[in-house]
Amino acid sequence: MIFDTALILDSIPKMLFGIGLTFQLLFLSAALGLVLAIILLLMRISGRWYLSAPTMVYIYIFRGTPILVQIFIIYYGLPQLEFVRDSVFWPILREPFGCAILALTLNTGAYVSEILRGGVLGVDRGLKEAGAALGLSARHRFIYITTPIAIRLALPAYSNDVISLMKSTALASTITLLDMMGIARTIVAETYAPYEIFISLMIIYLALTWMIQRSFGWIEKRMSRYVRSEA
């Protein structure tokens, strides 16, 4: 076969038209997912079974099923339910964009809450005891000791999850959204050149991954400045 380099150079700018949507999907669901993850985490570590048990079920379901299935259930399934169509959320859920955000958020929230829990569990017990011995309340200990240390511990795994999420945004193209993946599929349908087009797409995704990695690398370095000089 003939590998058409010109087609790659030609199609990259076209696909970049979808980068705005990819970014919207990524940032919005990352932000909402983080909020959800913190709520799930607090429920999970509350020590009350009626709060922690539902989160465990939730996490099991959303980590244990393909995100594509979750997107399809939300996009094709929910509108079948009358109370969903009657609810205040219908204006959001009738749009594929809203459905994609919802699915990505619910999915990443489950993963991230487990990542944060790992961070919280990784905080040295002695430090919490030192806080307690100084008379700090449980709330103050959590805010001023556990949280900052847990964030640093969770950061590497969290950056992985953001990269995962970025790649998952491509699945939004399966429910008619014209993100970069959606545009790529349209171009392929017109040009019958899947090889060149998808390679171009890979290049763009790799560039995004590189940017995410660099950003988190910078944040990690900043947050770890106090451990760097460890003898």
């Binding site: 005891e129 030192a130 307690a132 011995a133 008379g135 700090l136 240390i149 106090y226």
Partner: peptide, 21 residues
Amino acid sequence: IDAVRSEVGMVFQSFNLFPHL
């Protein structure tokens, strides 16, 4: 208990200084 603890200083074997501060 927090008030009682605030009147009782404690020094640990492993120092337990807050590493991020």
